[in-house]
Computed example of a mutant assay.
Amino acid sequence: MTERKPGALDGLKVVSMAEQYPGPFCTMHLSDMGADVIQVERPNGDPSRFLPSFYEGLNRNKRSVALDLLDPDQKAQLRGLIAKADVFLEGFRPGKLAKLGFSYEDLKSLHPTLIYVSISGFGQTGPYRMRPAHDLSFQGLGGALDERISGAVSGAPPAVLLGDSVSGLYAVNGILSALFARERTGKGTYVDIAMSDAVLALQTPFIAADAEEDAALPQRDPGYGLYETSDGRWLTTSIAHEDDFWDRLCQDIGLDDGVGLSRPERVARRDELTGRIAERIQRKPFAHWEELFGAAGQMWGPALTRAELAEDPQIQARELFDRITRGDGTVQRILRQPVKFSAYENAPLRRAPAIGENQGEGFD
Score class of each variant (00 low, 15 high):
K5Q: 14
P6Y: 02
G7K: 00
G11T: 08
P22M: 14
P24C: 10
F25Y: 15
C26M: 03
H29E: 03
S48F: 12
F50V: 15
F54E: 07
Q74L: 05
K75H: 01
R79T: 05
I82R: 02
F88Q: 09
R93Q: 05
E105S: 07
E105L: 09
D106G: 10
K108G: 01
K108Y: 11
H111S: 10
T113M: 04
I115M: 06
F122M: 02
F122Y: 15
F122E: 00
G123R: 12
G123W: 09
T125E: 12
T125K: 13
M130I: 03
L136W: 07
S137W: 01
F138P: 06
G140C: 13
L145Y: 08
D146L: 13
E147C: 09
S150K: 00
V153S: 10
P158D: 07
L162G: 08
A171F: 09
N173P: 05
G174E: 11
A178Y: 05
F180N: 12
F180V: 13
T185C: 06
G188R: 06
T189P: 05
S196M: 09
D197T: 10
A198Q: 05
V199E: 03
A201N: 08
Q203D: 04
F206H: 15
A209L: 08
D210S: 07
A215S: 04
A215K: 09
P218Y: 00
Q219G: 00
G223F: 11
E228W: 01
T229P: 00
W234Q: 09
A240G: 12
R248N: 10
Q251H: 09
D252S: 15
D252I: 11
I253D: 03
I253G: 05
D256Q: 08
V259K: 06
G260V: 04
R269K: 14
G275P: 00
I277F: 07
E279C: 00
P285M: 11
L292Y: 04
G294P: 10
A295M: 04
A295Y: 00
G297I: 06
W300D: 01
G301Q: 04
L304F: 06
L304D: 01
T305G: 15
R306V: 14
L309M: 15
A310E: 15
D312N: 13
P313N: 07
P313C: 02
Q316H: 09
Q316N: 05
D322G: 13
T325V: 14
T325P: 03
R326K: 15
D328M: 06
T330G: 11
L335N: 00
V339P: 11
E345K: 02
A347G: 02
P353I: 04
E357F: 13
N358R: 10
G360A: 04
E361Q: 14
E361C: 04
F363Y: 08
F363K: 03
